[in-house]
Write a protein that binds this DNA or RNA. Structure first.
Lengths: 237, 237
DNA sequence: AACGTGTGGTGACCAACGTCACAGGGAGGG
DNA sequence: CCCTCCCTGTGACGTTGGTCACCACACGTT
């Protein structure tokens, strides 16, 4: 197998080094071998659409490498980004497990390696391997939680600055406790707007305001938090 | 065991007649017996709080009878209703499975019968019984889906009438295809507002408008849809 | 160099809706 | 019976932020 998108494909799950503890496929050896037998490894370029909301579920995509944008679109063409999936996540599990159509759209944001598993195979796999099933349940729980978090953000905050502040804090939450945390992210104002459910112009304006007030500066793809306490005050915490 | 809240407690899951196919506890006999051994049956009055967001998870509550309001509250006291849980649902499963604090608050809206299962017992139960674990995963999937639906409603619709229309359609979706569907619900305008993330006054005004335009009439606790096509047009479908 | 395209930055305008304030009505309790 | 809540209904007002229109800049292509 070559390297079509600039990286080597890892074909064998059992010896895969991409995996870390938080990965769905962080499983005991026997279970992992069973998973390895039913999956199809593939790589995709940036901008590839894995599935579209409304399609009936073909199966799950295990994200090994890269980022995938999960979104949903209204009839008028307005789109809302639900999350940017990180390596280790399983995409399309809700639809696959419950048998209802995919309710979201998944699109790669950069070259990705993914393992696809057919719905039938995946369900059999879960049935036979209790440990994997429990892991799947944990995975789904986490998805629910981030969904609830977004509902809170959308439903409970009145102003756009508040939602943006919440998002910035979320991003820095992962990074350790520095005085001026920096975060790398490759998102346009447009995409940020789609995450917090507002318009592109508003994001630009609020970011300009944050810059002026020395709260946070977004330069290129680097975000620097200058004054975390004020951000925290903005979200009403 | 008496009847403290106007109904008999069903203590034995195996012979329970409340259960229908959609219930989480619609399980094979052997599994059901195992569930029966670890659960504690209890009944609660209206307004009882089962758990509060932020608490560490004690376990799950299987809702046998009654309605439970699931909500989340902001620091300023504004609350958002995530859903009204129906009999057959399991409450607090996300937190219990993932081990993170309850992210929502559960409060009975009427006298309820519930089965409580301790976290440890429940996890053991899932581990031992693959069929139950799969069922749990399905349950979580459905929760995710309704969460995503609410995110769509909150993030993708610009106007309050649109969100309210969407909610009304959701309620009638369950009832069969009548020309003028009627739905029973015991919700105040305030609560409706908390579901669609708007203010009480706006709900009153929009409902008044719907009444005037002969689209939908809410009288007492009975909602009658007069003109479904217009509602559907309002949501932009 | 000229051109297209995607992104960021800004001003002006206006509808939607949150908020405040208050009034009427129904239910339950003393 | 009156009193007190809670719910519903409605008017007035002010702010937020969505929308439109336009410009500047960067980058890649022809």
């Amino acid at each position: 197998m070559g390297a079509p998108y600039g990286f080597e494909l890892v074909e064998n799950c059992v010896i895969c080094k991409l995996r870390s503890d938080s990965f769905f496929c962080s499983l005991p050896k026997a279970t992992l071998e069973a998973f390895d037998r039913i999956k199809y490894t593939a790589s995709y370029p940036a901008g590839a659409v894995l599935f579209v909301e409304g399609q009936s579920p073909r199966g799950i995509y295990m994200l090994c490498k890269g980022r995938v944008k999960l979104s949903t679109t209204s009839a008028e063409g307005k789109t809302l980004i639900l999350k940017i999936a990180q390596p280790g996540e399983v995409l399309g599990m809700h639809a696959t497990v419950s048998g209802t159509p995919y309710e979201i759209t998944a699109e790669t944001g950069q070259p990705c390696q993914l393992n696809f598993v057919k719905r039938e195979d995946f369900l059999n796999f879960l049935q036979k391997h209790g440990d994997a099933c429990l892991k799947a349940a944990q995975h789904l729980s986490k998805d629910c939680q981030t969904a609830y978090q977004q509902i809170r953000s959308l439903g409970l905050s009145h102003s756009a600055p508040e939602r943006l502040a919440r998002l910035l804090l979320e991003w820095t939450a992962a990074s350790p406790d520095q005085r001026e945390p920096k975060v790398k992210l490759a998102l346009t104002h447009e995409e940020i707007a789609q995450i917090i459910g507002t318009s592109r112009e508003t994001v630009t304006r609020v970011l300009a305001d944050f810059r002026k007030r020395q709260i946070a500066v977004l330069k290129g793809s680097t975000l620097t938090i200058r004054n975390k306490p004020i951000l925290e005050k903005l979200v009403g915490a």
